[in-house]
Every structure is written in structure tokens, then in C-alpha cells.
């Protein structure tokens, strides 16, 4: 599979932009989280068409299946209803913030217009065993980074438990 055809690309782009916009615009955090899940599933679809099948699967498992479930769970646990004031105060500062974000986006797009590596000839399409190659790279060239990330995850797990620890519960010692 090469990259998407024009029609499919614009459909995907429209879906992604709509969902991403909904994430930041919904006053109810649960709706935001659910829109983010949809964004991530659509992104997995785009990855799939960009010859990153394994990454697409991992995106589904890690992001949509684990990280976002955690988000939704925490929001539901707190039972946050519709927020009265979801956005920060101040009309002028708000306008400035939106303008700065738009500037960043415009600047980036303006820069990307001149990127010239986008030739279809040099795509991964012919490579059939991408997953295997990926694994070989991960465990040879990037093995140090991989180990460090494992350590980071351990530290984060311990830290998260230490931060959100409660006294008592079913596992209390006495």
C-alpha cells in the first residue's frame, strides 16, 4: 500500500481535524476524552496506510486501549459534569493565545511547503518485512535507549503509586 489517494487523504484529514477540534472545544471532559479516542483510532488508520502497520497496532493497544481508558476512568471516577467555565478568562489574552497557535501552525506549514523529499519513489511501499526490520533496529542500534525507557517506566510506576497512595483499603497491613 502506498500512501493514501487524494480523496481518502482529505476525508481522513477532515475527520482528524474535526475530532481534534472537538477535543479542545467540548465543555464536558468526558466528551473531550472520547473525541481524543476517536482521533487516535483515525490516526491509527492513517499510520496503517503509511506502511507503519505495527505502529498502527501499537497505537490502538497503547493509546486507545490503555492510556485513554485511564483518562476516561479518572474523569468518570471524579464524576466531573459539564464545566461552567471550561476556558480561561480574558478575551484579549484568549485571542492572543489562539493567534499565537495559528501563527505557529501557519509558520510550520509555510516551512513545510519547501520540503522536497516528498517523492513517491522513495517510499516504504516495496518493503514487506517492516516489522522484522523494526525489531532488529530496536534491539541493536537503539538498545540503550530501549533499556533507559524501561528504567523510566519503572521510575514512573513507582512515582505514580507514591503520589496517589491512600491509607487503608483492602491491602492495608492491619
Amino acid at each position: 500500500m502506498m500512501s493514501l489517494g487524494p480523496a481518502m487523504f482529505y476525508v481522513f484529514a477532515a475527520i482528524l481535524v474535526f475530532f481534534a477540534l472537538s477535543v479542545i472545544m467540548s465543555p464536558n471532559p468526558v466528551h473531550s476524552a472520547l473525541y481524543l479516542v476517536l482521533t487516535m483510532i483515525s490516526l491509527a488508520g492513517v499510520y496503517f496506510h503509511l506502511n507503519a502497520q505495527f505502529i498502527a497496532g501499537v497505537q490502538l493497544i497503547v493509546y486507545a486501549g490503555a492510556v485513554m481508558v485511564l483518562f476516561v476512568m479518572v474523569i468518570m471516577l471524579f464524576d466531573i459534569k459539564q464545566e461552567l467555565r471550561a476556558f480561561t478568562k480574558g478575551l484579549i489574552s484568549g485571542a492572543l493565545k489562539v493567534a499565537s497557535a495559528a501563527f505557529v501552525a501557519g509558520y510550520l506549514i509555510g516551512t513545510f511547503k519547501d520540503v522536497s523529499v516528498g517523492s513517491q519513489s522513495a517510499s516504504l511501499a516495496g518493503n514487506t518485512d517492516i516489522t522484522k526490520e523494526l525489531a532488529l533496529m530496536l534491539y541493536s542500534k537503539y538498545v540503550l535507549a530501549f533499556e533507559v525507557l524501561g528504567l523510566l517506566l519503572l521510575v514512573v510506576a513507582v512515582g505514580a503509586v507514591a503520589v496517589s497512595r491512600v491509607k487503608g483499603g483492602t491491602h492495608a497491613k492491619h
Binding site: 491509527a44 502497520q53 497496532g57 497505537q59 490502538l60 486507545a64 486501549g65
Partner: peptide, 10 residues
């Protein structure tokens, strides 16, 4: 397999 795991994790 990765796809099946991903789909059923939803």
C-alpha cells in the same frame, strides 16, 4: 495478532 489485540482492547 497485533490488530486483534488492538481491536479487542477497545
Amino acid at each position: 495478532i497485533v490488530f486483534v489485540l488492538g481491536a479487542s482492547s477497545l
